[in-house]
């Protein structure tokens, strides 16, 4: 039962992702870009952030950086269609707790949330 924020410019993915989270008993929220995401983080308390890497404008890495600065306690999971080793290393360096590749299955999401929120 976690409050989860997804920052991703893909609207349809956001809808599907939210439905999945809801069906697992979590409380999802979606932001379509980094600016909106940061604003939302400021308004409510979230347990996990899922951030898409390649968004137009400020991409997922920027969101990662800024959220770590403003909200260092919230774990950030990068999801992306990219799968570049370079970027993977950079994300981990900047403090991402996990890095997942799209397409992502429901069980993967569920497992990740469990792992990240484990005490």
């Amino acid at each position: 039962m976690a409050k989860i924020l997804l920052v991703d410019d893909d609207v349809e993915f956001g809808i599907a992702f939210s439905k999945i989270l809801k069906s697992e008993g979590h409380k999802p929220a979606v932001a379509l870009n980094t600016a909106e995401g940061l604003k939302t983080l400021g308004k409510e308390k979230f347990d996990i952030i899922f951030a898409d890497l390649s968004m137009p404008g400020e991409n997922g890495l920027v969101l990662l950086e800024k959220s770590k600065k403003g909200f260092p306690d919230i774990p950030v999971v990068m999801i992306t269609a990219f799968g570049d080793w370079d970027v993977y290393a950079k994300a981990i360096e900047k403090g991402a707790v996990k890095f997942v590749n799209k397409p992502v299955k429901k069980e993967e999401i569920v497992q990740i949330i469990k792992d990240v929120l484990a005490p």
């Binding site: 893909d10 349809e12 993915f13 599907a16 992702f17 439905k19 999945i20 069906s23 390649s54 269609a81 990219f82 799968g83 570049d84 590749n101 799209k102 397409p103 992502v104 299955k105 429901k106």
Partner: peptide, 24 residues
């Protein structure tokens, strides 16, 4: 190649999640 991969994988992940939801 990475542009195409990216452009294809995004819709694919939505399809995949929606299929799982449909199955449920």
């Amino acid at each position: 190649s990475s542009q195409i991969a990216h452009a294809v994988r995004n819709p694919l992940s939505t399809i995949s999640l929606n299929a799982e939801l449909l199955s449920d």
